[in-house]
Design a binder for these strands. Structure first.
Length: 468
RNA sequence: GGCCCGUUCGUCUAUCGGUUAGGACAUCUGGUUUUCAACCAGGAAAGAGGGGUUCAACUCCCCUACGGGCUACCA
């Protein structure tokens, strides 16, 4: 039978950072295309010259790169296609699918105001729709779509189902402004058509617009793409995402220390499901993702769950990749990079670090013991554990460790044996040991630290602490 | 105002007419433990409300309530 090749796209407007909702829309498009051997295109909707900035475009590109959402082909600028959009509008005019409207904005505004006051429909019906060209004044005009006034337009949406809108509810939208610049609604349709987009997956704030856009497809006799309008993401309070609660740019999530894989997993699972699967890889997401698994209701953003998933992803990521991502994290948060001479130790430590961290912040905190140089500066809590009594215990314990084989079992035996002969619970030993070795109170197991540090460094740190 | 969409545990969701309404995160209790993280056992926790249709409804239909979107010469 042969399916036509799938082409999806993400089309943000460059008016700010890439927020989490946009990121999810991009992710869905990416997953859908990647799972079907299709193409995922990126188009910047920069027709609003006043609000579009190159910085925003840059932020969007960066955000997508961090999330690993690679697009096919060049980034397309919608603004640059304006001549083509105009061409189509003129073609529609020539074919009688559009007309010149000389109504001024003031006139229209006055009409709407009056209509609202009288509780009539505010739908504007231009008197120029069927006016004879001889009656045209010598004045500026816009080009409007000559939309059907009867019948209905049915959006066959893959998420929302069939949505029927009566044509008499839709006005003759403007295609070309009086300065002959194309309007967004026209630009999207022309670009999607020219780019060969087969599946339009976007926020459901565009659902109603889809009916209007379909009229352009119909007028041009172009095939209508498959639509999937996905519900928006809300904040934890159920309200629309705002700066206050989570409408952060994706770069903020990166700075918060969340790994991209975890964010992808969380975002994919937010509003989409594949049975009871919660934790999955990109490969699985790509294989499983489908439009019919997308829910119809808006979902709320939950940092706790994000964090949980991120922890699982950090634990599942291989050490080399983790090192790389950690490096990026340190860079974007303006922290010092891992010194070259500390990297081997950190590498050795990775196995006991990664399953105890949910974010890169926690990872670096727990890695501190492998990064620090003697003498270790204990933080406040650790310093308290190194009182005179504890130091005395450590002083006695040190030779026992020093003489042990440097294996986990032998070290444990040495510590436990020492504890028994001195009638000390291991907990009494572990605290001071941790403080001496790491200068911190939240670390991997003391034995893991000893193994990572090696005999010489371990003993030296213990001596530093007991002599100090 | 008009039109459109939505509503299952606190949150994300499963269910696609017949289930003790399942899972995950969070939460609570107990256990384990070497701090952190984790782990083990268990608990509490849901079909917005009202009408239908049906032998049977969370599931289909209608109404209401609540939430959201669109209604621009913004995107």
């Amino acid at each position: 039978m042969g399916h036509p090749p799938v082409v999806t796209r993400f089309a943000p407007s460059p008016t700010g950072f890439l927020h989490i909702g946009g990121a999810r829309t991009a992710l869905f498009n990416w997953l859908y295309a990647r799972g079907r051997g299709g193409k995922f295109l990126l188009r910047i909707e920069d027709t609003d010259r006043a609000r579009s900035t190159p910085e925003a475009t840059e932020a969007i590109l960066k955000g997508m790169a961090w999330l690993g959402l690679d697009h096919d082909g060049e980034v397309i600028s919608q603004f640059e296609n304006a001549p083509r959009h105009r061409e189509i509008a003129l073609e529609m005019l020539a074919k009688g699918h559009a007309y010149k409207c000389f109504a001024t904005q003031d006139e229209i505004a006055a009409f709407r105001e009056a209509a609202r006051a009288e509780k009539r429909s505010t739908l504007y019906q231009s008197p120029w729709r069927d006016a004879a060209p001889e009656t045209y004044p010598d004045a500026p005009y816009v080009i409007r779509l000559k939309a059907p006034r009867e019948g209905v337009t049915v959006i066959r949406d893959q998420v929302q189902g069939d949505v029927t809108i009566r044509n008499d509810q839709l006005d003759d939208m403007v295609l070309l402004r009086s300065d002959m610049t194309p309007v967004y609604m026209l630009a999207v349709v022309v670009d999607d058509h020219d780019m060969g987009v087969t599946h339009v997956i976007r926020g459901d704030d565009h659902l109603n617009n889809a009916a209007r856009q379909m009229m352009i497809y119909t007028a041009m006799d172009w095939p209508v793409p498959t639509y999937a309008h996905i519900p928006l993401i809300h904040g934890a309070d159920g309200k629309k995402l705002s700066k206050r609660h989570g409408a952060l740019g994706v770069d903020e999530y990166q700075k918060l220390g969340y790994p991209a894989a975890g964010v992808r997993n969380y975002l994919a699972r937010l509003g989409w499901s594949h049975g009871d699967d919660e934790f999955f890889s990109d490969a699985q997401a790509i294989e499983w993702f489908d439009l019919n698994g997308i829910g119809k209701s808006p979902s709320r953003f939950d940092f706790k769950k994000l964090e949980n998933l991120c922890g699982q992803h950090i634990a599942a990521t291989d050490d080399a990749a983790l090192q790389r991502e950690l490096g990026q994290f340190l860079q974007v948060t303006g922290q010092n990079p891992i010194p070259e001479d500390k990297k081997p130790a950190m590498n050795r430590a990775m196995y006991c670090l990664k399953d105890r961290a949910k974010t890169f912040f926690q990872l670096i905190e727990k890695a501190e013991f492998s990064l620090a140089s003697r003498p270790i500066q204990p933080d406040e809590k650790a310093a308290k554990l190194l009182d005179n009594v504890s130091r005395g215990i450590l002083r006695e314990l040190t030779p026992h460790l020093q003489n042990a084989n440097w294996t986990r079992d032998a070290l444990e035996d040495a510590a436990n044996g020492f504890g028994e002969t001195h009638d000390l619970k291991f907990g009494k030993l572990a605290g001071p040991l941790r403080a001496a070795l790491a200068g911190r109170t939240a670390t991997p197991s003391v034995f893991d630290m000893m193994l990572v540090l090696g005999r010489d460094e371990t003993i030296a740190r213990l001596q530093d602490a007991t002599n100090g």
